[in-house]
């Protein structure tokens, strides 16, 4: 009988998203690597699942509910320091991605065009200063 040696495939999941495995790294090292992209992972717990079908799933669970949300005494300062270090590297979750996207020349050109369009569309110069109440989309009746 021949015994086939199959390497267990690792799958990392965070917040429902599958993160590619990084061969040669321990799960903890993988978590630390991805914390550059998701700063809240710095203090995340690692849950190792059962091996099923040659696949072992690791789930990163945030130690806190949302980014910057802390639970126990003494943890707030640590979490804040962790956020500062993550921001210093320029790696901030959604905000960082959005800021980088908005800084692209193409985004800025399109933003400038929209701004110019809005200015041109004003009926008179004073309209820019006029106080306007814009209804929230929740307040608008659905279209028939």
């Amino acid at each position: 009988m021949t015994i086939a040696i199959n390497e267990i495939q690792r799958v990392f999941r965070y917040n429902g998203v599958a993160l590619p495995d990084v061969p040669g790294m321990t799960p903890r090292e993988v978590r630390d690597l991805y914390s550059a992209q998701y700063p809240e992972l710095i203090s995340a717990e690692i849950e190792a699942g059962e091996v099923a079908g040659g696949v072992q799933e690791y789930t990163f669970r945030k130690a806190v509910g949302t980014k910057g949300c802390t639970s126990g005494e003494g943890s707030r300062l640590a979490a804040l320091k962790a956020d500062v270090e993550a921001e210093a590297k320029g790696a901030t979750d959604v905000r960082g991605k959005l800021a980088r996207a908005l800084a692209r020349p193409g985004s800025q050109q399109r933003g400038g065009a929209w701004g110019a369009f809005v200015l041109q569309s004003m009926r008179h110069r004073g309209e820019r200063q006029a106080a306007r109440v814009l209804p929230d989309s929740d307040m608008l009746a659905p279209l028939p």
């Binding site: 949302t66 980014k67 910057g68 802390t70 956020d83 921001e87 905000r95």
Partner: peptide
Amino acid sequence: EADIPATWSD
């Protein structure tokens, strides 16, 4: 430490 809010955006 007690002055730090429970949640923050940045």
